[in-house]
Nucleic acid binder design. Structure first.
Length: 1085
RNA sequence: GGGCCAAUAGCUCAAUUAGGUUGAGCGCCACUCUGAUAAGGUGGAGGCUCUCGGUUCAAAUCCGAGUUGGCCCA
């Protein structure tokens, strides 16, 4: 790209972005950038693998944009960054999608189709989905190693999972056992807690009486799952809870019921008892040991009936003030807490329910029925047994399978676990080794989660996953004798079959047939696959292809940074910590940046399934990639959710357009003057720099310092704000406005060269600062600024460092004051009705403090120029501007009571008084005659008070002072950050000389506009024809003819026959102006 | 049902890590400017800082209770 080449007038994101994509391709921009940092210090970033379903949504877009901005920043800081993207490709979500595609309903369909075929279908589907994500991410301008993503279905990656699991096994943290788990009866597999989603549903709500065996009466329990009653094993009470025995009456029958004291009224009301009487008060403790009869003993002949069962026991999960009755029906074959307590009590869990959710033969008369369908019959049976106290329905939230939305059931099955509860202390310690942004996420939410985490059930009874690398003896199904294989090499060595470790695929269809024979025993593989969360949990070494490739693990592991949304607290942040700790005893990551979710503009959560979403592709279509990124990156990433906003997008586009104009503006001048930034450097022009040049350079240093500090704190939003503030406010709206006249100077001058060098330096560094945020526009601008002299891509640049030489806090504060004064001056001018084009004879700055005085003294020339004032007068804080007078405004609510009937007169006197200083003494002196004249009031006052009360006096509270500026002068207070620092007064009186310049400038402005209408080049000479309808004004303009000619580049002023002619009305004076390019005039002459 | 986070102008967010007159950007309205022009400038309207209670001379800020939203857990 040529330096200072022509750039588009209009910022057109789509055309530009397309061009930059091609350019990156041509010069291998990404590859060069990576190579450029290959000798740098390593930085190990690990990409949290998105699940390969569908395309990128706004949340993943935000996530990847955040990753991209930090990876680019780190690279610019010199790091050799690991940027391998990853994809999570196994698991139930894909299985269910493929099942849908193939029209399957359950596992039997899969078995008939063939495991091998099904796995192949899943693989193809996952690959398809991956392509969509890959192209989306690249399209967003994210730079990661797209040619070589890690895929959880590759043999290297699956091996990484085996390795981690085998390490955990070596540490004694793997066991097989019975547990109560959430089970999806459709998918016929266990689910992890985080795979269960809760929805509100209506379920039965029944109160059941269990008749006591050795004594009169019955205990009352409540449940919403009647289908678990067949498996009832014991009833739990709170040993410290208060219970009552109630003699209750209904339809002439009397019953003795045992219920928690706190619940008995509510329960009896449910049961519609007519009358009742508390006959016994007792603690739960006293009830333990009571035995009762199973209410469905007849229907379920195989029901639990062992030693100690069907009795009342204490348990800590009972709440005598919560839902229910304070006595809890407990079935260790189902509920998790029931199971734990049952195990303590030594009860074998009884679970008469099969994998498909139907009762087994053990279920007695219910055998073959789906459990939830059996609810009705069970309720009917309980009623006919006389065990139903009340039966109704309730709305409550109930767990559902995250994939197929089937209601889950709690059952006890054999599963494989990583017993992370054995290393809970280590986990909690390891939390301390990671630094989180924001820190509360770690210390509150994450710590709570880890503290409560149960053992990790890693086995799933499914197909599309990493097979468990566990082989057990053919004839045993416990975990006492087992082989855990750690990698492919070991697999090849130990299995009976002949396999090639280089080429073997590790999926279920391949490894299921492999057997191991050792010590005369033949081992077969456990048929389960891993919970898909285990896949991504090993990403910190899977990313490195470890253990297959052990060349980088020691140097890089653990990860320096991971960056995901807050839902990953229970997901990937946790699973990685669990796996890292179980396998290696360490946290696998050192820093966590946790961002929020992308919400709809109205604050709702986005939901693809309900079609509530903003599609990133639409955002790009409307505003382009850079704008979308700027919008996303302008949001706080630390835990807060982001509301998407089209208005916000538009604002960012406006900012980027301003930025574009800033970069574009100086190019024609630099081109024209053949400015060479290599020769005309800042160092070279140092002596010629003017205060504003030094100021903008100082501001640049502050901006760099602020941005760097914010980015290092993971606040890219604040860093961006600082940059936009600098470019839009300081460079565009102030500096460029102020220096443009220097650039229009036709002569080569030291001042012009200084301005060029300054603005070049500022723009060149600013574009580098912008590059991580808006990589496309930055690239284009960088190319134009650097031509052949820069890197091939802006993204190879070093992150700009603060140059102490140019730092200048004093100057920054000075200019801050000057800008405040200028702003107030503009206001005062408007009040006085004097445009900026018209000079004013003087501006008076009345300062409140010495800091303002210093600033104005140092830069009064600049201030005069900015305010177009012939003179600046400074009044220090100690002095008063003598031309100023004060009057007083009366507060009648105070004045009235004090002066009575004379108050009106006093008020008028106050308002008319003009005093030189705003003091009560001066005011009293000014209105003395009115006050002293007040004989009658004095007398009346004295008489009324019948004492020696003094006559009415003016007090501070009665008046407020108002400044009265002289005619032709307007004043406005100035200040910043909410503090006033003084007042600026603009003297707008007219002189002939001022009118002369004012009218001349009016003419110039109109000629410029006409030049523009003719689309003349900046340097095009013209001939000007000027007819002014008022002789006085014509003479005034004539006095400034030289100025007019120079400004509009007119070689002559004379009558023209043709030319571009227009009539103007200037302050009620008619002016006819004609313009013709010089060449055209000569040709026609 | 429990935990965490948020709630301030029409919108997006600030309010200087332990209280001291609520601010900015965008949007809106009016005026203005015009060789960056789909810009720029000046002014204006717009707030019971979610509600209720408490601590304090003083609360957007601290404490308690609730409401709404988001995430997590059961």
């Amino acid at each position: 790209m040529d330096r200072f080449a022509e750039v588009d007038d209009q910022y057109d994101p789509h055309e530009l972005e397309g061009r930059i994509f091609d350019y990156w391709d041509d010069v291998d921009a990404y590859e060069q950038t990576v190579e450029h940092r290959s000798d740098g210090e390593t930085y190990f970033f690990v990409d949290g693998p998105p699940y390969t379903s569908g395309s990128a949504h706004m949340g993943t877009t935000w996530n990847k944009s955040l990753k991209d901005v930090y990876l680019r920043f780190l690279r610019m800081q010199g790091y050799d960054v690991t940027d391998r993207p990853g994809y999570d490709m196994h698991g139930l979500p894909i299985e269910t999608r493929v099942e849908e595609r193939l029209g399957f309903e359950n596992k039997k369909d899969i078995e008939e189709f063939g495991e091998e075929n099904f796995i192949q279908e899943c693989k193809e589907y996952a690959d398809e989905q991956l392509e969509g994500l890959q192209s989306d991410f690249q399209d967003f301008g994210v730079w990661m190693d797209w040619d070589d993503p890690y895929r959880t279905v590759s043999p290297e990656y699956m091996e990484a999972a085996w390795w981690g699991f085998s390490k955990a096994a070596e540490r004694g943290l793997v066991e097989k056992g019975k547990r109560s788990i959430s089970w999806c009866p459709r998918c016929e597999t266990g689910l992890a807690n985080n795979e269960v989603e809760y929805d509100d549903v209506e379920d039965p709500s029944i109160y059941v009486t269990f008749d006591l065996a050795d004594r009169d009466g019955s205990v009352v329990i409540w449940t919403t799952t009647p289908w678990t009653i067949p498996a009832n094993t014991f009833v739990a009470v709170d040993p410290e809870g208060e219970y009552v025995g109630v003699r209750a009456e209904k339809d002439g029958d009397e019953e003795l019921l045992y219920i928690a004291e706190a619940k008995h009224e509510a329960v009896l009301k449910e049961g519609r008892y007519e009358d009742y009487e508390v006959v016994e008060e007792l603690t739960g403790e006293e009830m333990t040991g009571w035995s009762y009869e199973h209410p469905l003993a007849e229907q379920v002949p195989d029901h639990v009936d062992g030693e100690g069962t069907l009795e009342v026991y204490a348990a800590d999960y009972v709440d005598t003030h919560g839902d229910g009755t304070g006595l809890v029906h407990s079935a260790p074959g189902h509920g998790e807490e029931d199971f734990e307590r049952g195990r303590e009590l030594g009860f074998e869990p009884f679970c008469p329910v099969g994998e498909d959710g139907t009762y087994t033969e053990e279920g007695g008369t219910y055998a073959g029925q789906f459990v939830k369908d059996a609810n009705e019959e069970i309720i009917a049976d309980l009623e006919s047994e006389g065990a139903m106290l009340a039966s109704g329905a309730t709305d409550h939230s109930y767990g559902h399978c995250w994939r197929c939305d089937t209601g889950i059931i709690q059952v006890v099955t054999d599963q494989w676990f990583i017993t992370i509860t054995d290393v809970k202390d280590e986990l909690l310690d390891n939390i301390e080794d990671s630094e989180w942004h924001p820190d509360w996420a770690r210390d509150n939410r994450f710590r709570d989660f880890v503290e409560d985490a149960p053992d990790w059930n890693v086995s799933r009874q499914r197909y599309w996953g990493i097979p468990l690398p566990v082989w057990t003896p053919e004839d045993r199904d416990d975990d006492q004798d087992r082989i855990v294989v750690g990698d492919r090499e070991e697999l090849a060595e130990r299995v009976d079959q002949d396999i090639d470790p280089e080429t073997v695929d590790l999926h279920k269809d391949t490894v299921d047939g492999l057997t191991i024979t050792e010590g005369g025993t033949t081992y077969t593989r456990v048929p389960d696959v891993f919970d898909v969360w285990l896949d991504s949990s090993v990403a910190s070494w899977g990313t490195l292809d470890f253990p297959a490739d052990d060349s980088r693990f020691d140097e890089l592991w653990p990860a320096d940074l991971i960056l995901e949304a807050h839902d990953q607290t229970r997901g990937w942040f946790w699973s990685q910590l669990g796996m890292g700790t179980a396998a290696l005893g360490e946290s696998p990551y050192e820093q966590v940046l946790m961002h929020g979710h992308a919400l709809m503009p109205d604050g709702r959560a986005m939901s693809k399934s309900r079609d509530i979403l903003i599609d990133p592709h639409e955002a790009i279509d409307r505003h382009g990639r850079d704008v979308m990124r700027l919008f996303l990156l302008s949001n706080n990433p630390q835990g807060d959710d982001m509301r998407f906003s089209w208005d916000g997008m538009q604002t960012m586009e406006n900012h980027l357009r301003t930025l574009w104009n800033v970069f574009r503006f100086p190019l024609p001048y630099m081109r024209l003057d053949e400015f060479d930034p290599e020769r005309t450097t800042l160092e070279e022009v140092d002596a010629d720099l003017q205060p504003l040049d030094e100021w903008v350079l100082a501001r640049l240093q502050s901006t760099k310092a602020e941005m760097t500090a914010e980015l290092e704190e993971f606040r890219q939003d604040r860093a961006l704000e600082a940059l936009l503030e600098f470019v839009v406010e300081d460079v565009s709206r102030f500096y460029i406005q102020a220096v443009r006249e220097r650039m229009w100077d036709e002569e080569d001058s030291a001042s012009k060269r200084a301005a060029y060098a300054t603005i070049y330096h500022v723009l060149r560094e600013s574009v580098v600062l912008l590059a991580p945020y808006a990589p496309f526009a930055s690239e284009e601008i960088y190319g134009v600024l650097t031509g052949e002299s820069g890197h091939d891509t802006v993204h190879m640049e070093d992150w700009p460092e603060v140059e102490e030489y140019w730092e200048d806090d004093r100057l920054e504060v000075d200019v801050e004051h000057l800008r405040a004064i200028e702003e107030a001056g503009a206001n005062a001018r408007q009040q006085a009705g004097r445009k900026l084009r018209w000079p004013v004879p003087r501006v008076v700055v009345a300062a409140d403090d010495d800091r303002v005085v210093e600033a104005v003294e140092r830069h009064s020339d600049l201030l005069a120029e900015r305010l177009n004032a012939r003179e600046i007068e400074l009044v220090s804080a100690e002095d008063r501007w003598e031309e100023l007078a004060y009057s007083a405004e009366a507060d009648m609510s105070k004045l009235g009571p004090a002066f009575g009937g004379r108050a009106g007169e006093v008020m008028n006197a106050l308002n008319e008084a003009r005093i030189d200083e705003p003091t009560l003494e001066a005011l009293e002196a000014a209105v003395a005659d009115v006050l002293e004249d007040d004989e009658s009031a004095e007398q009346r006052s004295a008489e009324d008070a019948s004492g020696d009360e003094p006559r009415a006096q003016l007090e501070e509270s009665m008046v407020s002072f108002v400044t009265e500026t002289p005619e032709e002068i307007a004043g406005t207070p100035f200040g910043f950050d909410g503090d006033d620092h003084g007042v600026v007064y603009v003297d707008a009186s007219l002189t002939e000389d001022i009118e002369s310049e004012g009218y001349a400038r009016e003419v110039i402005r109109r000629v410029q506009e006409m030049r523009k209408e003719l689309e003349l080049d900046v340097e095009q000479r013209i001939v000007l024809d000027l007819e002014i309808g008022d002789d006085r004004v014509a003479n005034l303009v004539a006095e400034r003819e030289d100025l007019v000619r120079e400004e509009v580049r007119a070689d002559e002023i004379r009558d023209l026959e043709d030319g571009h002619r227009k009539e103007w009305d200037v302050e009620d004076v008619t002016m006819t102006i004609a313009v013709e390019p010089l060449a055209a005039v000569e040709a026609s002459d």
